[in-house]
Amino acid sequence: MFLFDSVKTFGSYLILMKRVITPPQRWRIFFRQMMHEVYQLGVNSIPIVLLISFFIGAVICIQMKLNIESPWMPKFVVGYATREILLLEFSSSIMCLILAGKVGSNITSEIGTMRVTQQIDALEIMGVNSANFLILPKISALMAIIPILVVFSMAAGVGGAFAIGKFTGIMTAQDLIVGLQYEFNQWYIWCSIIKAIAFAFIITSVASFYGYNVKGGSIEVGKASTNAVVSCSALILFSDMVLTQLLMQ
């Protein structure tokens, strides 16, 4: 039964996406909406991304120092491991999990409210493809801005690691810098960005799907937001596994 329901849900998701991914009826309005969403979903998320990345960078650095430093390991290992964790997983997957909570619930409740107050019906009556009109700007906006968020997150994380090293004196700045630069592989950054773009699609499309299909009133909108965040998170983790396997081979 559960399997049947999942296949059915996935089917209606695909049908919705087929309506979403078509050329906009008016490009001018599409770009206006998209700019608005870039601001709403992307620029407004920068503070939380910077804040969380900074502290996670610092915490990872402390944990590495406490747990893997031993006399027979080179001193730069702490910086090296911190950087790898940030670049490979934190700045793409974990940051997108955080965004799923912030951006995902925001999208679901916005579109869900439009559904229950008949604003979506009003669009349909006018002959507007409401799915395309409401959802496509969100998907393209977050996919366009997410690389910037990823890079910001990386920078803030490394900054956090560096700050903790420098101000607490748990290690010398010199060791940390050597570690942070040790065998740097540019491909890892691209990997993160590619993964994050995929996650941005998942967050916006899945959250929109939940909002678009709300039936009932404000309680259902609330439930749909929760479900959207749970589904987004699970899907991000699952596709993280697949993408990491594909990209890191």
């Binding site: 439009m114 604003q119 009003a122 006018m126």
Partner: peptide, 30 residues
């Protein structure tokens, strides 16, 4: 659909837009 106007039970104005923008919306689109 462009020949149809509909008034919903709860008005269903787009709440992200001002009143004037709401009225202009069908014109903008079509």
């Amino acid at each position: 659909r462009q020949e149809i106007g509909m008034l919903f039970q709860n008005a269903a104005l787009f709440d992200s837009m001002s009143v004037l923008e709401n009225v202009m919306f069908p014109l903008d689109m079509f």
